[in-house]
């Protein structure tokens, strides 16, 4: 499987993502710049965390209009996997690929720590290696991770099992219903505030994130071997 890690001006988790899929999951991966206009030859797209365009205006609001984004939107429309973490999640909501919005943390503070999460949907192409309801530990590092959507959207998310990760024990940012990560209705675009790519080595505190990328790779294998 060949991954594209999109690099925006101000991205700062692009190397972590490349490391996770290349060195840990042993897949092909390349950086693709924000001003590129093609994703030909890639099987998965990863939108990194960071502070694209300095978080000016709103997080992700300017990155969403980068030259590469129409191509990311087209890629997603083909049903291919797109994953955004942290600022990547914010970009996906701004681009309309995922519903809702990430508001400023309720505490108004930037929160940087490892949190406990629950895998509330282990039947997705991003979480199939986890057990349903499994509790995992992933780092978060954000000032705007307070997920919000209107009541109709929330009802839809619940009905379609689109809430994939929730915060357990403690909600670090005030997000609606403890939401940490959601998937689109079709099941090929996932966004989450926590960083699975920063949890791929026990030596560095947690390896809970490995199964995330393994799930992506396994499901890609299934799709391609079925022709």
């Amino acid at each position: 499987m060949k991954f594209a890690v999109i690099v925006f001006p101000g991205s700062n988790c692009d190397r972590d993502l490349l490391w996770a899929v290349k060195e840990i999951s042993k897949q092909d991966a390349e950086y693709v710049r924000h001003d590129a206009t093609s994703l030909a030859g890639y099987d998965g797209v990863l939108l990194p965390g960071g502070f694209s365009y300095g978080d000016y205006l709103r997080c992700g609001a300017i990155a969403r209009f980068s030259a590469i984004m129409p191509e990311v939107i087209r890629f997603a429309a083909e049903g291919k996997p797109v994953f955004g973490t942290c600022n990547g999640f914010q970009i996906l909501t701004e681009a309309g690929l995922l519903p809702g919005v990430l508001k400023k943390n309720e505490s108004l503070k930037f929160v940087c720590k490892t949190v406990k999460l629950k895998v509330t949907n282990a039947a997705t192409n991003f979480t199939s290696q986890y057990k349903q309801g499994e509790e995992i530990f992933l780092p978060i590092a954000h000032g705007e991770g307070n997920y919000y959507c209107d009541a109709a959207t929330l009802a839809k998310l619940k009905k379609n099992n689109q809430i994939v990760f929730t915060y357990e024990d403690e909600n670090p940012n005030g997000s609606l219903e403890n939401i940490a990560g959601i998937i689109n209705e079709r099941g090929n675009v996932l966004g989450m505030m926590p960083h699975p790519e920063r949890a791929v080595e026990e030596l560095l505190g947690s390896a809970s994130g490995i199964k995330f990328f393994q799930s992506m790779v396994e499901n890609y294998r299934k799709v391609t071997s079925n022709g």
């Binding site: 205006l57 709103r58 609001a61 809702g100 919005v101 508001k103 919000y148 959507c149 209107d150």
Partner: peptide, 8 residues
Amino acid sequence: RLLANVTM
């Protein structure tokens, strides 16, 4: 399109 996110 840009200045406001009409969700919020």
